[in-house]
Design a protein around this nucleic acid. Structure first.
Lengths: 158, 158
DNA sequence: GCTATATAGATCACACTATGAACGAGATGA
DNA sequence: TCATCTCGTTCATAGTGTGATCTATATAGC
């Protein structure tokens, strides 16, 4: 077994390097996609992300959006004002609390958000359709495993 | 087979949604890592990325860096001046062409870049070590397959 | 050698993402 | 009612990125 050791280490290092490369390529591809969406819909990516939140909830507050997007409240004020200017969103006063503003989609915003979500789904479906059914299962299992490992390491290091 | 159809479609849609979710989580995790590195080393992420290029080549030009990072030359001027201020990089005139500046790491920059690369490798290794050897192979195969499919769809759409 | 053109890098204006401190207005508990 | 808390806004600051423009150098053709 002793003479296997260096070989095993080499193989592991090779795997780690390959892993690093592949992750970089996949993430790069995702970033390209984000930029493409932003350009295609003529909406900055932060605003796109914000729009997508309204698929879960009809009304959102600045604070709620900040939490969901994981950004500062001041950032949300800016993002929402961008969406307001584009007429994709309205902002009304909460009748039960004068401090909070309830933000919701306009009809136009609803249409836009559906269009975006549908293209996004279609794109993900296309990627899976590139694969054979067993490959799809394998990729999903692997992604699940990968996510778990990444979260675990993140937890331990940060 | 007819009665299988709706079931199959449902399953595929379920897979696509799961895929979308997992990808978002994985990419999010990578972004957190980038921010963590930037904070830990006290260097903006674009400058970190630039530093890493010198592991391949000892001397780089502004144009070369722009191509490798896939950004405009003007961005590179800014990034390099940041690294210059931090003393991680030097800029000398190319003796064979008065227009070009040759950028290379200082001793300090070399040390920093090695430190960063080594932490990055260690982190990727830790993620793989969370898995069993067969899982590692599976994940790498899946990532390879995924990257290919993503590139293929990107090619077709953009 | 001289001129037109191409190229390298710097500078500038602009746009987007993001944070944190400070602030005004409204809520709320003692 | 007064201190305190919370909500959303504004502002200064920092980072990422583009494209137009400019200067200086290089080079190909005359």
């Amino acid at each position: 077994m002793n003479e296997m050791r260096p070989f095993k280490d080499d193989f592991f290092r090779y795997q780690a390097r390959r892993f690093q490369e592949l992750m970089a390529e996949v993430v790069q591809c995702c970033e390209t996609r984000t930029a493409y969406f932003s350009e295609k819909f003529g909406i900055p990516s932060a605003e796109l992300r914000c729009l997508m939140l309204f698929r879960e909830e009809k009304y959102l507050t600045v604070k709620g959006i900040a939490q969901k997007l994981d950004v500062a409240k001041s950032r949300v004020t800016k993002i929402v004002s961008g969406l307001l200017e584009k007429g994709l969103v309205t902002r009304i006063d909460d009748p039960s609390d004068g401090r909070v503003k309830l933000i919701s989609l306009t009809r136009e915003g609803r249409a836009k958000s559906e269009e975006i979500a549908s293209l996004s789904s279609r794109m993900h479906e296309m990627i899976l359709l590139e694969m054979e059914p067993e490959e799809r299962k394998m990729v999903l299992t692997a992604l699940e495993r990968l996510r778990t490992s990444m979260e675990a390491v993140k937890e331990r290091m940060m």
